[in-house]
Each structure stands twice: as C-alpha cells, then as structure tokens.
C-alpha cells in the first residue's frame, strides 16, 4: 500500500516538474499545485498507512493511525491552497499589465508607460 502511494506521488511530482518547466503561466501554476499534492501524499505515507482506526478520541479504539502526519498535511494543504489562489491573482494581474502569459517574454527590465 505504501509503495503504491509513493509511486503515485512520484508520478505527480514528475508531472509537476514537466508542467513547471513549460512556458505558460497557467501551466506553471497547475504544476505548483500538483507538486504540493505529490508532496502531501508523501507526507501522509510517512506516518504509515492502514495502521488502525481513525485517530478520533474514542475509548474503545486502542490502535489508531498516526494523527501527526494528517495534522501536518492539513496545515500544508491550507498553505498551498492559499498560495495557489494568490498566485492565480498575481498571474491575472501580470497578464493584464504585461499582456503576455509566456514566461519567455518575461525577461529584462520592462518600463512603465
């Protein structure tokens, strides 16, 4: 089970590298969020999957999954969610100001008109 998730996260990270290296701004943004997904899956796997019950306070459950990676993952998801949204806003503003969404053209020192 762990192996499958690790391979899946590897595929996600590989895809995100391809996307981040492309020229379009939108693809780069999708790439960063895919990278975050891959990394979060990895973080989840590090606490060992399928070890027991859900980590919710209950007197009858004696063995339960490691709650820490899940808590960390939640925090990391919130952060990457906010970052993706902010990046989208910046990308739209950049597109309006510079008139391009091709990073090849985003070089040098542009001058304000």
């Amino acid at each position: 089970m762990e192996l499958i998730i690790i391979i899946l996260s590897g595929i996600l990270i590989g895809a995100s590298v391809y996307l981040i290296l492309s020229k379009s701004v939108l693809r780069i943004i999708i790439g960063t969020s895919t990278l975050a997904h891959g990394v979060h899956l990895m973080l989840l796997t590090m606490g060992e999957l399928k070890r027991g019950n859900v980590p919710v306070l209950d007197a009858e459950v004696s063995s339960y999954a490691d709650p820490l990676p899940q808590a960390l993952m939640l925090t990391a998801i919130v952060i990457s969610f906010a970052l993706t949204a902010f990046l989208l806003a910046v990308a739209i503003k950049t597109y309006r100001e510079l008139g391009t969404d091709n990073v090849e053209e985003m070089k040098g020192v542009p001058h304000d008109d």
């Binding site: 020229k23 379009s24 939108l26 693809r27 391009t100 969404d101 091709n102």
Partner: peptide
C-alpha cells in the same frame, strides 16, 4: 506563441 488565456 498565442496566449493560452486568450485561447480559453
């Protein structure tokens, strides 16, 4: 290269 945003 034509812009993806415009294409969309």
């Amino acid at each position: 290269m034509k812009s993806t945003l415009k294409k969309a």
